[in-house]
């Protein structure tokens, strides 16, 4: 399971403050703690900022790279900000994210190609959020087809079936899960399947419990990457345990004490 830590996001108040004050230590510390928690990559999102977002993105990427050496997921709705992040990134990067909308694919597929980056693709398009698994699969197919035309290796694609808050769109939690196995059959090598996990519990009273329950369900459906909070120990324990139950890691009594692979 490929874990992308979600905490370096300007939507968090402490991160917004660190950005405003250019507090490199606070950002570096957050990066290190997420890696220690089991993150394989870190998402970098400037959040809403009064400053030039490309500049903020560049500073964040540089600051995080000073502290740790793992792939970064450059997270912005603006292609120009994504490009700035990719340019600053020394190692492997992911782009977070495109959708199935033509305009976004046109802007982001070439960037993924140019920088050899992974591309997270949400299965929504001009028509909005699909309402069932079949509609998600249809958009996924269109994204895969475009990627193949462009020459992006299909295993650089991270298809996201769109996880919605359980309190707002309860029926969609199941539809997203049902879409996952269909994504895997679209091409060879199959695309990765990723979820933005915390969305499922947005605005609910039991966030951590809902997150970790849904994570285990998603893993069983073939999800092999997630953007989540690696500082949530219970969540990370469930992730390891589900990996054991799915025969992705060899069991032993102390498996939780060992460093995650």
């Amino acid at each position: 399971m490929f874990v992308i830590g979600e905490r370096i996001n300007g939507m968090f108040r402490s991160v917004a403050r660190a950005i405003r004050e250019r507090d490199a230590n606070a950002i570096a510390d957050l990066a290190r703690r997420q890696v220690a928690g089991g993150a394989h990559a870190l998402d970098i999102n400037t959040g809403p900022t009064g400053e030039e977002p490309a500049e903020v993105m560049t500073w964040l990427v540089q600051t995080v790279q000073e502290a740790i050496d793992i792939p970064l997921s450059i997270d912005s709705p603006k292609p120009a900000v994504v490009a700035a992040g990719l340019r600053a990134c020394r190692g492997r990067a992911l782009i977070n994210s495109t959708t199935g909308a033509q305009e976004r694919l046109d802007a982001l597929l070439p960037l993924a190609q140019e920088f050899g980056a992974g591309l997270i693709a949400l299965t929504i398009d001009e028509r909005g959020i699909p309402r069932n698994a079949a509609a998600r699969a249809e958009i996924a197919l269109a994204i895969v087809a475009r990627a193949m035309e462009t020459g992006l290796p299909t295993d650089h694609l991270y298809l996201d079936p769109i996880v919605l808050p359980v309190n707002a769109a309860q029926d969609q939690c199941r539809e997203a899960l049902a879409a996952m196995p269909t994504f895997r059959t679209l091409c060879e090598p199959p695309p990765h399947i990723i979820i933005g996990l915390s969305n499922v519990s947005q605005g609910t009273a039991n966030r951590s419990l809902i997150n970790r329950t849904y994570l285990a369900m998603a893993q069983a459906c073939g999800c092999d990457a997630a953007i989540l909070d690696p500082l949530d120990k219970d969540l990370m324990d469930v992730l390891r345990t589900a990996g054991i139950l799915l025969n992705q890691e060899i069991y032993c009594d102390s498996y939780l004490q060992s460093q995650p692979a």
Binding site: I250, Y251, C252, D253, S254, Q257, S258
Partner: peptide
């Protein structure tokens, strides 16, 4: 026993 081998390695590294 692969499980016990892994267990032992974890105990030793701990």
């Amino acid at each position: 026993d692969v499980n016990i081998q892994k267990q032992l390695n974890i105990l030793i590294t701990e």
